[in-house]
Amino acid sequence: MEGTTSQSTFTFIPSTIETPSPSIPEISSSSPSPGGSLARVAQSYPPGFPRKVFAEVIGTFLLVFVGSGSAGLSKIDESMVSKLGASLAGGLIVTVMIYSIGHISGAHMNPAVSLAFTAVRHLPWPQLPFYVAAQLTGAISASYTLRELLRPSDEIGGTSPAGSHIQALIMEMVSTYTMVFISMAVATDSNATGQLSGVAVGSSVCIASIVAGPISGGSMNPARTLGPAIATSYYKGLWVYFVGPITGAVLAAWSYNVIRDTEHPGFPISLSSISSKVRQSIGGTEQKSDQRCLV
């Protein structure tokens, strides 16, 4: 693992040379050290890692419950929730969850976001499968909950292409690119972070979903689409919502790294700093956070 240094051990050899006991095998210098393996595991999975995974389950559950639930209610009866209201609800739940669990897990709540941040080394690769599993668990659980609550209707806010699959694919790529590009800026670049950065990410979700909604449903999240698809056994165009968001997210992370200001580098920071700064400005108290969890 990075940061591991090898140490040479010097042993004083006395004048009396003893024959080594044949019962004690020599340890090859190339043999892996158990301590080194444990250190690598501890570095990949710190003690607080289970809390991060559980936070992603909760965050994704609430994201899908509110986002899909409002979209489902809008399709059932637009007089209850308008299409614009459903888009606003999806953006607002992202905003409040960033302030709620951003300091714990980074508030990804999206496999495409987690993969993008892993690709640019802001999330360790060994943690990615656990993040994705937690997000899928939260999304599927929320979808089955909505299915029970919205009966007898089968509409629980799933997303499927309204036109051709290619149109939906391009729209999902562009909308996810927009959302992740903004997330990369406010979550990894201290020069772009302010007290309202969480609002910036939530607003990007609102804007992208308003534009993408009539064409692709504005998912921008494989878990957001897969959960309702499994709960309703409706898989039309499912591949679009994997290929599109993942491609758009990775391209956004890569392109922001290209234009990042390297002349005035700042420490990578998490969206936890946003809620911390808000608490400081409201309460007048100064708090410090050592978290490096990124969106």
Rank of each mutant, 00 (worst) to 15 (best):
Pro245Val: 03
Val64Ala: 10
Val96Arg: 04
Ser74Leu: 05
Phe181Arg: 00
Pro111Glu: 03
Ala133His: 06
Val132Leu: 13
Ile101Gln: 02
Gly69Glu: 02
Gly85Trp: 09
Met171Ala: 14
Thr118Asp: 02
Ser114Lys: 09
Leu136Cys: 13
Gly36His: 08
Gly237Gln: 11
Ile282Leu: 14
Gln7Cys: 08
Tyr131Ile: 00
Tyr235Pro: 12
Ser30Gly: 11
Ser190Asp: 04
Ala42Asn: 15
Pro32Gly: 06
Phe117Leu: 15
Gln7Leu: 11
Leu128Arg: 05
Ile259Gln: 02
Ser37Cys: 08
Phe61Cys: 10
Gly48Gln: 08
Leu115Ile: 14
Ala55Ile: 03
Arg51Cys: 09
Asp261Phe: 01
Ser190Glu: 12
Ala252Tyr: 06
Glu286Thr: 12
Thr4Ser: 11
Leu271Gly: 05
Lys288Asn: 14
Ser23Ala: 12
Gly35Lys: 12
Val66Asp: 02
Ser28Gly: 09
Pro34Thr: 08
Leu38Asn: 06
Val113Ala: 06
Ala112Met: 04
Phe242Met: 04
Pro46Gln: 08
Tyr45Lys: 08
Leu115Tyr: 00
Gln195Tyr: 11
His264Lys: 14
Val66Gln: 02
Glu263His: 09
Ala185Gln: 07
Gly36Met: 10
Phe267Gln: 13
Ile166Glu: 14
Glu56Trp: 05
Ser30Asn: 15
Gly194Leu: 05
Pro265Leu: 02
Cys206Arg: 01
Thr178Glu: 06
Gly157Glu: 01
Ala187Val: 00
Gly218Arg: 01
Gly158Tyr: 13
Leu150Glu: 09
Gly237Cys: 11
Arg224Leu: 09
Met179Phe: 14
Tyr99Gly: 03
Val180Gln: 06
Ile230Arg: 02
Gly213Met: 10
Ser8Asp: 13
Ser203Met: 15
Arg40Trp: 07
Pro268His: 07
Cys206His: 01
Gln280Asn: 12
Asp290Val: 05
Thr247Phe: 13
Ala55Pro: 07
Ile182Glu: 00
Glu56Asn: 11
Leu294Val: 15
Val243Phe: 12
Phe130Glu: 01
Gly244Phe: 01
Gly194Tyr: 07
Val174Ile: 15
Pro222Cys: 09
Ala168Tyr: 04
Val53Arg: 10
Leu123Gly: 03
Phe65Leu: 14
Ser281Leu: 13
Asn110Ser: 07
Leu149Arg: 11
Phe267His: 12
Leu149Val: 13
Pro20Lys: 09
Leu150Ile: 10
Gln135Met: 09
Arg121Ala: 12
Thr178Trp: 07
Ala119Asn: 02
Arg260Asp: 02
Ser275Ala: 15
Gly157Pro: 03
Gln167Lys: 11
Ala253Val: 00
Cys293Gly: 08
Ser160Phe: 12
Thr118Cys: 15
Val240Trp: 04
Ala252Met: 07
Gly158Trp: 05
Asn257Cys: 07
Ser68Arg: 02
Gly35Ala: 13
Glu263Ala: 10
Cys293His: 07
Ser23Asn: 12
Gly157Ile: 02
Tyr177Trp: 12
Thr60Lys: 09
Pro126Asp: 08
